[in-house]
Write a protein that binds this DNA or RNA. Structure first.
Length: 426
RNA sequence: GGAGAAGUCGCGUAGUUGGUCUAGCGCGCACGAUUGGAAAUCGUGUAACCGUCAAAAGCGGUUCGAGGGUUCAAAUCCCUCCUUCUCCGCCA
């Protein structure tokens, strides 16, 4: 969400930004906002003036009543009554106009960072850097579900019976591996100075409204029947939600948080749950990073955040690359975003395992998250988020890359203490 | 789930026969005075958002959990909702 003052001052820049994102149909919204906003402010000014008059007269009436001057008081009352109708109309007009302005402001995309490459869709995302050798072994790497089944580590048939498609039972060493990865990720981030959180796994509708659009909500969030509660789709929802409508002290910044949670997603829409396996599912678990920082520090944090994920995967011998989201593929709220992708020796390509985003001040503005600054006045901080790791999807990369010719799976050194000292499973 | 109590400007509180409430007081905080320095003391200040303005100051508006209503006028009266606390019940 943009600052409307910025839009008023730089309408052409906002339009140019919309074009860069190939959303030309939204260009007209800019002029509409300017027009509606102007009307809205005019109505508000007029309404405020009337209300001021009313307040002044009301106060006089109070004085008159006290002195017992009944007739004068009655006359004054009448003059206020005459204003009431115009005021009511103006009030309604202001409400209506500001709703129309907000409606448009919510869909006008955030200003993208100058470094974001211009492109229409995900096919034009740009590889930034590779880490590790994308090796293909000389034996065949099976589909990840087959690897898991051979390890007696997954039961999809039972999950379909109890819960339907898109759910899983993990068991034995694979389940243990799943927990080990999360425990290791937790400690990995704590060691890097992040504060560990276990947040609520359900949030209220007003928080949901704040952190996502209506269509996102419809396509992602599971609602608890008969309660004003939704299952979170990511811990970012509860972690950012905790700051809604708050003013942080300057010395509380930066907030560098790492949170664990299960994540629940309906996955309605474009992709859906069309594939077998645990790549896209209704339930997974995730270690996340969330940062709230000073605006001038967000670029530096952005790089640090996705490097954390790269380092994490590299420490588990998984080759990764970073992929910069082009303008057209960038979600409207984001200033810049980089995906971390892991190498799949079976598919011989990289696939997404995490996404790092800098939201600038847009999310903070939308959620009224502010920082107290007595000298310059309160300001909106920047917010960022990134995936550390999200199994079981991550296990696909893990198993494929650590699979050995004899069918066993190597456990890299950092994970061994979380696996009871095992150096391999199988 | 049952019963009761309560939500006021960072914190704690005052304020309910509607009108100098333009929300008082205490604490905290900031600045200043005093001091060799400090404590103590004294003084001053102490919210957010919107509008007006080139900008600041100033001025105006809104906000006493949220929303609606009554009224010329609502922290105060009425309605609906939310939340918190206490006790009981149930339960990882």
């Amino acid at each position: 969400m943009l600052d409307i003052k910025f839009l008023r001052a730089e309408p052409e820049a906002v339009k140019e930004n919309i074009r860069k994102k190939f959303q030309d149909e939204k260009v007209a919204l800019v002029d509409e906002v300017i027009e509606l906003d102007e009307q809205c402010r005019a109505a508000k000014t007029r309404c405020d003036t009337l209300r001021n008059q009313r307040n002044v007269i009301s106060k006089q009436i109070g004085g008159l009543m006290k002195q017992g001057k009944k007739e004068e008081a009655e006359a004054a009352k009448k003059s206020v009554t005459d204003m009431a109708e115009e005021m009511a109309q103006l009030d309604a007009r202001v409400d209506e106009l500001s709703a129309q302005v907000r409606e448009r402001m919510l869909v006008i995309p955030n200003m993208i960072d100058p470094s974001v490459p211009i492109g229409r869709d995900d096919s034009e995302n740009i590889e930034l850097e590779r880490f590790g050798e994308p090796a293909v072994p000389d034996f065949e790497v099976p589909y990840h579900v087959d690897i898991m089944e051979r390890l007696q580590g997954i039961d999809l048939d039972s999950a379909r019976k109890t819960s339907g498609n898109g759910f899983y039972y993990l068991c034995g060493d694979v389940a243990r591996l799943h927990s080990a990865v999360l425990s290791y990720a937790r400690d990995f981030m704590i060691d890097r100075g992040f504060t560990y959180y276990i947040p609520p796994f359900m949030i209220r509708s007003n928080v949901v409204d704040g952190v996502m659009s209506f269509s996102e909500m419809e396509n992602m969030m599971y609602k608890i029947e008969g309660e004003d509660l939704y299952l979170i789709g990511t811990s970012e929802h509860s972690m950012i939600g905790k700051f809604i409508d708050t003013i942080l002290d300057e010395d509380a910044l930066p907030q560098a948080l790492t949170s664990y949670s299960p994540c629940f997603r309906k996955e309605v829409g474009a992709h859906g749950i069309e594939e077998r396996g645990v790549y896209r599912i209704h339930q997974f678990e995730k270690q996340e990073m969330v940062v709230v920082c000073r605006p001038e520090e967000s670029k530096e944090w952005f790089t640090r955040l996705y490097r954390n994920t790269v380092d994490f995967f590299r420490s588990l011998d998984i080759p990764v690359r970073t992929l910069e989201c082009c303008s057209g593929d960038l979600a409207d709220l984001k200033v810049k975003s980089v995906d971390v992708e892991a190498w799949s020796p079976r598919q011989k390509k990289y696939f997404e395992v995490g996404s790092c985003s800098n939201l600038g001040d847009a999310q903070a503005r939308r959620l009224r998250i502010r920082v107290r600054d007595k000298v310059k006045g309160n300001y909106f901080p920047h917010t960022l988020n990134n995936t550390v790791v999200a199994p079981p999807r991550m296990l696909i990369a893990f198993l494929e890359n650590n699979l050995r010719a004899d069918g066993t799976v190597a456990i890299p050194a950092p994970l061994q203490m979380y696996m009871g000292g095992k150096t391999f499973i199988g």
